[in-house]
Simulated scan of single mutants.
Amino acid sequence: MSVKTVGVLGGGQLAWMMAAAAKELDISLIVQTAKENDPATSLAADVVVAGIGDVQAIAQLGKRCDMITFENEFVDLAALGKLAEQGVCFRPNLSVLAPWLDKYDQRCHLQSLGLPVPKFITLPDGKPQGEFPSPPVKALGLPVVMKARRHGYDGQGTTVIQTWQELEPTWSQWGYPAVLLEEFIPFERELAAIATRSVSGEFTLHPIVETQQENQVCRRVIAPADISSEAAAKIEAIARTLMENSQAVGTFGIEMFYTPSGEILVNEIAPRTHNSGHFSIDACTTSQFSQHLRAVCDLPLGNTQLKAPGAVMVNLLGYEHATSDYREKRQQLEQIPQANVYWYGKTQSRPGRKLGHVTVLLDETTEPARRQQALAISQKVESLWYE
């Protein structure tokens, strides 16, 4: 199928960056998003202002596009399934998307593929009856991580429980929904990989990166990660298994824990382009956004190699409740050598909200000098942004 027009469900910054890539590939991108001033509306070829759960609007979008892809995973699969039965093409297709929307289902699917994950169980919804915490819960040990099964992101819907006395009161504050409980991994570093698979089965992996989180929100990304060739080979094998056994089409973000003993455990999967891959716009021959479009449109995948010795990406997170474009701060950031500043055009700032990012290319060719350079630059960016 020759693809000339792509629909995107969601109009945030990921769709905005995808729209820029679409222009370079001569692909027409139509975005369906809830607000007419969402980031992607400034670059998309056309915009449908409707929530991504608006089935009638999606049906109309399907008639205007050769296929529809996703900016986020907050979708109603049952409703979309009826449209698929009517001939609307989704990539990745809905059966591929299904295991990744619920964090417990995601864990089970990864385990079924033989991929390494933390120990986990689920707590069904409703106030617990009988002994609590139960022996299976206590078997996870302390601390333990509690996650909302759906719709949690950027630190929302995730908390670390330090004592068993905290567990039920915290769960009660959430309203006793079904949750995922998993063992806490005392990792050395957090890593991420951007994997892509095309309709024809071609596979690529962008350089593996180190991600640094604060309060479960990504603050900075260092590319490439300072890991051994053996660790890199393990990660590539994980990514291939995941993408090929799932018959995935498109770009997926794979978040992992790297332990002091060299063990690699899969943390979470994002079935879409991902914050950890933003560095690729400036640092790689082919960005994750271009690669995703190439994959879903069944075009040859691009070269994912770095164009510089490395890069550091720093998220510009909101730190106050305000209405501002922070122009003066952005101008200061632009003065940093090799800096590329991306501003998503959001009009409202609140603590933790992703307002933009900065990518700086690195010139150090060896470790640990390159990592030290990345940390020094990220400290400079953050001192200008948060001062």
Rank of each mutant, 00 (worst) to 15 (best):
A237R: 13
E255D: 09
S246M: 08
L242M: 10
N245K: 05
G277Q: 06
R272G: 09
D282A: 11
E268V: 07
S261K: 10
G250E: 11
G253V: 07
P271V: 05
V266Y: 02
L265P: 05
R294E: 11
R294C: 11
T259I: 08
S261D: 10
Q288S: 08
D282I: 14
D282G: 09
Q247H: 07
S280N: 13
H278D: 06
T286I: 14
N275Q: 02
A237F: 11
F252E: 10
S290D: 15
L265I: 07
P271T: 09
S261F: 03
G262A: 05
Q291D: 15
N245E: 15
A270F: 06
I281P: 11
Q288P: 07
A270T: 06
R294V: 11
M243T: 14
F289I: 15
F289A: 09
T273K: 03
H274E: 11
M256P: 02
A239V: 13
S280G: 03
A270E: 12
A239L: 08
T285D: 15
S261Q: 11
N267C: 11
Q288E: 15
M256F: 03
T285F: 14
E268N: 03
S280P: 12
S261E: 14
I281N: 10
M256W: 01
A270K: 00
P271A: 00
C284E: 13
R272D: 13
P260E: 02
I264V: 13
I264P: 01
F279W: 15
L293K: 04
D282W: 04
H278A: 07
G253E: 07
R294W: 13
A237V: 09
T251R: 00
S261N: 10
N267E: 08
C284G: 14
A248E: 09
C284H: 14
T273F: 13
F279C: 00
A237Q: 14
A248W: 12
A248R: 00
